[in-house]
Nucleic acid binder design. Sequence first.
RNA 1: GGCGCGGUGGCAGAGUGGUUAUGCAGCGGACUGCAACUCCGUGUACGCCGGUUCGAUUCCGACCCGCGCCUCCA
Length: 461
Amino acid sequence: MRIYNTLTQQKEEFKPIVPGKVRMYVCGMTVYDYCHLGHGRVLVAFDVISRYLRHRGYDVHYVRNITDIDDKILARADQNGEVYSDLTGRMIKAMHEDEARLGVLSPSEEPRATAFIDEIIAMIHTLISSGHAYAADNGDVYFSVNSFPDYGKLSKKKLEDLVAGARVGVQEAKRSPADFALWKSARPGEVSWTSPWGDGRPGWHIECSAMSTQCLGDTFDIHGGGPDLLFPHHENEIAQSECATGHKFVNTWMHAGAIRVNKEKMSKSLGNFFTIRQILETYPAEVVRYFLVSSHYRSQVDYSEDSLAEAGRTLTKLYHALRGITPAKNSDVAETEHDRRFAEVMDDDFNTAGAIAVLHAIANDINHHRREGREDRAAQSAAVLVRLGGVLGLLQQNPEAFFQADTGGELSADDIEAMIQARAAARKAKNFAEGDRIRDELLEKGIILDDSREGTTWRRA
RNA sequence: GGCGCGGUGGCAGAGUGGUUAUGCAGCGGACUGCAACUCCGUGUACGCCGGUUCGAUUCCGACCCGCGCCUCCA
């Protein structure tokens, strides 16, 4: 199986350090606000990756951290007039709700920065001792970028360019403008932890170095994150970790593509973001997930109402194939040509778009078998569709639950059933005008009817 | 300015040195009381210019355009 490695800028054959086991770390959220769709993309992308690795038989140890102490958190808490931990507690809860709705499985471990202060201090201490970091007069501790010759190897940046391009407002305390903070001294009244360098709190980058090596060891297989973390965050993590441990930090670096709105990156700083919960007010969660999974994890995707609507229509088609069928028992259905094709495309850097094409081919088979009255074959294919859909975190609902999910319409399921009965009676009496009137009335209220030999089913538009 | 990624049919989106992506939308037909669903069939494509090749959308080079990072940001 091949994975694109940001470090080497090419797809590489993936070989875990310990055969059969994958150790993976993904940078999670800084919890000062609700997650937006861009966060959702990273969440879903690495969820699919971990699901597929497990499907492939790997024992996956997936660590995704939470940054629960940081400048922005303190600023927001201050603005809200609340204790920072109240804010982070609330946002962590919201994040867990959002990801659960998107079908994102919990990582194996979810370390929080504030629970790793001792490890962070120990790592900073090691870096100072070995000459890779220094305590400045202002109480901050900085990493000395010049002490690490490989600095820039991930982002392909040259130190000279970075220094030359450094913005105004360079910290006097820094020896080089590109140096970054490992420890930030506390301002009066600010939450802080005691350290050999005075009261303060950890810098952002060192948290991830400490947590990842603590949870996964000095060297591990995969490190992932959003596209904007590549520099400086991941570059700095490499510098800190490799200087502190003396070992290679990570074998494979993976970065998701950005979500865009009107050709611009969706981001906090541009203010053009849609939160996950905001989007879920309008679209079913699985439709949002389908939208995210339907393009490759590294490509940029544009968010729009139209693309979500199309994702909805397409997912509806897939669920239609499953409707009214009891899938065969998964273990009774041997590996099919579709399973092999699915694995083939997913083995190629997690090509979920190709994998979804396989899902459509299976749905086609199911519909075909049903048309020919081969219910047994349809049930077998349905098992394959649900099994492979599950690897992408899709198609795990009962089709009726998907179609009839209550989105706050004015009609209850009982009301609708009653109208369907009335229509059936009218049609039986050949009163088609009345039957059509009822159907139109339901359509106006967002209910679509599907007739078949077995009777009439309904779904919400 | 430096570094990186990309330009595929009406739209979304994979992929390949010569042969079908897939989905949505469209068109024709079947099914249906009429629809919906489903099935069958069908059209439109690889930014531009050179080069390599028997043959390039796919490889190489130049160009144009778009995007990302270079500052907190998934």
